[in-house]
Amino acid sequence: MTRSVFFRFVVRVMLPVLFIFSLMLMLRGHNEAGGGFIGGLVASSGVILMTLAYGPDEVRQRLKIDFLRLMFFGLLIVILAGLVGLIIEGEFLAAEWWKPVLQGIGQLELGSPLLFDMGVYIIVLSVTSSIVMSMADEGERMDD
């Protein structure tokens, strides 16, 4: 596996950019191009870069995240987002909005679609990452 210094450096610079970009994609997804799926893919591309640069074992050590468990957590969020509409309005998956006005920042628009997107984001990120990590594990074993 290639572990060049340049590559590692670029990855270190790119990672925060990628994660922030992915969050931005997720947040604006309701009205513009983007959304949970795309955001999750961008974030997982960050994890993939990390895996390429440092190897799967070190990534696990640094991130300390069990991606498989995270996936089920995302699924719970998605179910919850569906239930919010069912409980408040009586329609499953109906969109519920909460728009608090914050001093100096402006109006926020929080709602169950955002919650749904967050769940999707987490699921996509964790599924893709865990697939890539387990394949990288196999690759390491072949190298040995």
């Binding site: 719970l76 179910i79 569906g82």
Partner: peptide, 16 residues
């Protein structure tokens, strides 16, 4: 009508 979808999904989440 929604429960036949949610209950099995909850089983899925029990992996946590």
């Amino acid at each position: 009508l929604v429960l036949p979808l949610i209950l099995p999904l909850l089983i899925g989440c029990s992996a946590l």
